[in-house]
Computed example of a mutant assay.
Amino acid sequence: MPADLDEKTDRYGEMLADALAAVEPTVPPDSPLGDAAAEILEMAESYLEDGRHFREVDDPVNALASFSYGYGWLDAGVRVGLFAVPDDGRAHLFTV
């Protein structure tokens, strides 16, 4: 049975918000990699805001796309080691 669009959109929005709250940069902020980590966080946060806006105007397709893109940016940053994943049960949020 396919997932309900509204349920999936809400789930991905919550997942992105939880993932943003969970990560910690692993690189110094004043290094080139620190700049990359900051840019990834900015992109993920922007996509979260965009998704919330689309949700408010009853556009779940674009909301889901925004949440998914934001999550992809953040997950890629975790995957390449720019962010640490906490060992408090939230590691399931990432593909490490």
Rank of each mutant, 00 (worst) to 15 (best):
D75P: 13
A19L: 05
D18M: 05
E7F: 08
A3I: 14
D10W: 00
R79N: 03
Y12H: 11
M1K: 10
I40W: 01
D75K: 14
D59Y: 06
M43S: 03
P29T: 13
Y12I: 03
W73S: 00
L82I: 09
D6E: 05
W73Y: 08
G77D: 08
D58Q: 04
E14Q: 15
G89I: 02
Y47W: 07
P25T: 14
G77H: 06
L74P: 08
S68E: 05
P28V: 15
V61I: 15
L48V: 10
V23L: 12
E14C: 02
P29S: 14
A19W: 12
V57R: 13
D75W: 15
E14S: 07
A3R: 15
L41T: 01
A17V: 10
D10L: 14
R52F: 08
A22D: 13
A17D: 11
E7I: 07
A44F: 11
H92Q: 09
V78F: 13
A84P: 04
A3H: 15
P28C: 03
E45P: 02
D50N: 07
R52M: 08
G34D: 06
F83S: 01
A38K: 13
F94Q: 00
E49L: 07
M43Y: 10
D6C: 04
A19F: 15
E42H: 13
M1L: 12
R79C: 14
M15L: 14
D4H: 05
Y69M: 09
L5D: 10
P86L: 11
D59A: 06
P2R: 15
V78W: 04
N62Y: 08
G70P: 06
A91Q: 10
F83W: 01
G34L: 04
V78N: 00
F83N: 08
A91T: 09
T26V: 06
G77F: 00
V57K: 04
D50L: 12
V27P: 01
F67I: 00
E24D: 04
A91R: 10
G13Q: 05
G70Y: 06
E56P: 03
P28R: 13
G77M: 09
P2W: 12
G34N: 04
L48Q: 13
G89H: 06
V57W: 05
R79D: 08
L64V: 02
P32N: 04
P32L: 09
A63T: 10
I40Q: 00
V78H: 03
E56A: 06
V57N: 02
R52H: 06
E39F: 12
L93Q: 04
P25C: 05
R55A: 11
L48A: 04
L16V: 00
R90P: 05
